[in-house]
Amino acid sequence: MNLEVNLGGIKLKNPVTVASGTFGYGREYSEFYDLGEIGAICTKGTSLRPKTGNKAPRVCETSSGMLNAIGLENKGLEYFAEFDLPFLKKFDTKIIVNTFGSTVEDYVEACRFLNKLDIDGVEINLSCPNVKAGCMAFGNTYEGVKEVTEKCRRVIDKPLIVKLTPNVTDITQTAKAVEDAGADGVSLINTLMGMKIDIDKRRPVLANNTGGLSGPAIKPVAVRMVYQVAQKVKIPILGLGGIVSGDDAIEFMLAGASAISIGSGNFIDPYVAPKTVKGIEDYMKKYNISDVNDIIGKVEMN
C-alpha cells in the first residue's frame, strides 16, 4: 500500500500532517507517540522577531469547535532555529515552518532567514484574523496575496506553501494568486472569524472580542473550499479544517487535497494524527486502493 504523497516537492511518507499553532514545536505530543509516524509537522506560526500575544481568555469552546485569539505569540525565528529545530530534527518527519509578518518586508526577511535552515518547507500564513491591521490586509485580495507570495518566492528555494484565510468572498481568487506567484502549494483553511457572547455578562467571552473558529464545526466549509480551489489551480492543496478522523481526511482528499492537516483535533485526542493515518489505511483496504494518490480529487459531482 502506498501512502506517500508529494506536497509541492515535499515528499510526505503519508498525507497526515499537524496544523500550525496546534502542535507547538512537537515536544508535548512527542511524549505520546513517535512523531515519525506522521507525514509532516507545521510549526507554530513563528515570526522574524518575538511577538507577544493577547490577553486571556484567549480560547473558548463553541458548538463542535472552539474560538481562539492567541495573537500569534511566539519567541521568534532565531529562538526556533536554536532550540526547537534541533529537537524536531530528531524525528523522521518533514518540518514545515509556518511564518508571518506584519509588513511585506517582514515576510520576505523571515523567508530569507528560513531559506538557510535545514527544514523541508515554508508555509506563509496570509490569514491571521487576530492581529490588528497586520497581515489580514494581504490575505484578502488577489493582488495582495500575489505580491507577498512573489516576493517570498524570490528568496526561497525550498518548497513554499501559502496558507489562505477563508474570510474572503471567493477563495479561488486568492488561491489563483498563490499559483500565479509561483508558490508550490496552497493550504486551506485557516480559522473562520467568529464571536461568542457571555449572556450573563453581556460581553464577548474572548478578551479580544473576536477569534478564529476551528474544529469539526468548520469542516463542511473547508471541504467545499478545497473542492472549489482544486477546480481552479494545479498546485497541490494541503487541506484542513475540523479533521478528527481518517474518514474526515478522506473527504478532504476526495475533494482535492494532496495532504491534510489536523489542528484543534490534537487537543481532544493526542493520538488523533497517527489514528488518522490508520483510518486512511483502513479506507484503502476497504475499497482495495493500493495508492493513496488515487483518492486525490476523485469526488464525483451529482
Partner: peptide, 26 residues
C-alpha cells in the same frame, strides 16, 4: 480557559507581574 491543557496552544496565558504593560510577557 484552556484549549490543549499541556502548553501547546498558548491559550491559558497569564501575565507575569514583572513584565511591562506595553510588552507583556506571558
Amino acid at each position: 480557559k484552556m484549549g490543549c491543557g499541556m502548553g501547546v496552544c498558548l491559550g491559558c496565558a497569564v501575565k507575569t507581574a514583572s513584565s511591562p504593560k506595553d510588552s507583556p510577557s506571558y
